[in-house]
Design a protein around this nucleic acid. Structure first.
Lengths: 248, 248
DNA sequence: CGGAATGTTGATATGCCTCAACTAAAGTGG
DNA sequence: CCACTTTAGTTGAGGCATATCAACATTCCG
């Protein structure tokens, strides 16, 4: 029988070994579901949240708000991710978290999590590892946005997003949902809308990848990987599921 | 009596409450000192380290190496920082860690750390929090390098570096050591050497900050903070030491 | 003192941004 | 169901910030 908590457990097992007791403890966490509309915030910059969210469905994004009002999106999160484990041990949110398109999350109190981690250190270490992988993704974004051309940035980002979507088991081979406008892509990759648009069309013409209608279509994975200088090591996936064998 | 471990304890206490038992546990960690020459690596991309380092003296930097051979520096670390707590629960290093100028670190095995965390969850939570603050700094770097001009980036970076150096208690008010060449500043902030150089001179002339001879000289803190759009919230310092009162 | 590393400065090129107009698609209400 | 409105995407012109290339000055260090 599948329970919503299993989404998190499956995710943690991508990189961590959990004993039966750990799994039971995670499965027993009191979680309630919350549905989100497009652009709706889960938490805002400055909040002091007492809950953490696990993505059940859809896409969430972290973002900074700049004095000009412009947003800088920091990362995207798909099914199984626990975006604000980042805030578990921090008083105030230094960033916001919102839904890109409709989404659903599971909410669990910090209290319940911490008390589980005290009883079951290995469960805590697994979630800790999850936050460390998040940090690795941030590092890659620094490099991506600082040292690569807009076209390469896009290619790299599509690789990462497709790769992570495939891991959830929800994306069919060759395509992945990506509910972002081109403006938002720009705010994620540190580029203006026109240059995103032009780079997108170049990628389309090159036959590597096609992004339109909130959908990534992979045309030639290996060429795209090369173009985007993508090496998935930083995602620290230990066990690539059989269903995602095409990613090697 | 002061022991080298106290450097880490002092750092953790900036943001976490540690009980006597936690402090004792941390103090009992078996640590050995290692001296580093300029440019020397602590760990390399691809390594599977069994040790974590705590910065005792000097500056360490994390970096990615790009196919072109260019480096992207990701973050700097000063006394008390635990830069590769990031790798505690990861198999392979997705980045390297090296000394900028001469430095000294304390090395502690992952094994000893993990076993302490099992006995003393609160000590683990404090180190976890430390890694989460690291992640917050990464997020800020994404925004800094993606959404700000080179001059603003520099100003923001100087603010952060000065702020963090002051917290260690090792920097006198008004200046901080920063053993980087302008080339390396460029590789940190995603900018070319000439534009770094010109932005530096602009900042110098504006009377906010002067960087030369591996030294940041703060001329006008409040103007610099404004210029760099710097808000230290993301550093998550709960208790600003009396000695660093000038930072408010 | 000589060589290497670092910093300074200028000329030129270019990727990307801004501004702007226009097209296409997708919702919305009569 | 269609006109209307809004939002998203496309494309071009012009300009600016930044990169690249290059020469030279300065400092550091053996």
């Amino acid at each position: 029988m599948s329970r919503p908590q299993d989404v998190l457990i499956r995710k943690l097992q991508e990189h961590s070994n959990l004993s039966g007791g750990d799994v039971d403890g995670l499965r027993a966490l009191p979680m309630r579901e919350r549905l989100l509309a497009n652009e709706e915030d889960v938490v805002r910059q400055g909040d002091a949240p007492k809950l953490s969210a696990v993505v059940l469905d859809g896409t969430l994004a972290r973002y900074h708000t700049l004095p000009s009002g412009r947003r800088q999106y920091l990362s995207l999160h798909v099914r199984g991710d626990m975006p604000d484990a980042q805030a578990l041990f921090l008083d105030r949110m230094d960033h916001g978290l919102c839904a890109m398109g409709d989404a659903a999350v599971l909410l669990v109190t910090h209290e319940a999590l911490v008390s589980l981690f005290k009883k079951r250190p290995a469960a805590g270490f697994a979630v800790w590892r999850e936050t460390l992988i998040d940090a690795a993704i941030f590092r890659e974004s620094i490099t991506n946005n600082s040292a690569r051309s807009v076209e390469t940035r896009l290619a790299h980002f599509f690789c990462e997003q497709y790769y992570r979507s495939r891991l959830t088991g929800y994306a069919v081979p060759g395509s992945a949902k990506l509910p972002l406008t081109q403006t938002q892509l720009g705010e994620l990759l540190g580029a203006s809308l026109p240059s995103i648009n032009r780079a997108l069309r170049k990628l389309r013409k090159s036959g590597c990848v096609d992004f339109r209608a909130s959908q990534i279509q992979i045309r030639n994975w290996h060429r795209l990987v090369k173009l985007g200088d993508f090496d998935p090591t930083y995602l620290h996936v230990r066990r690539l599921p059989r269903s995602a064998a095409d990613l090697r």
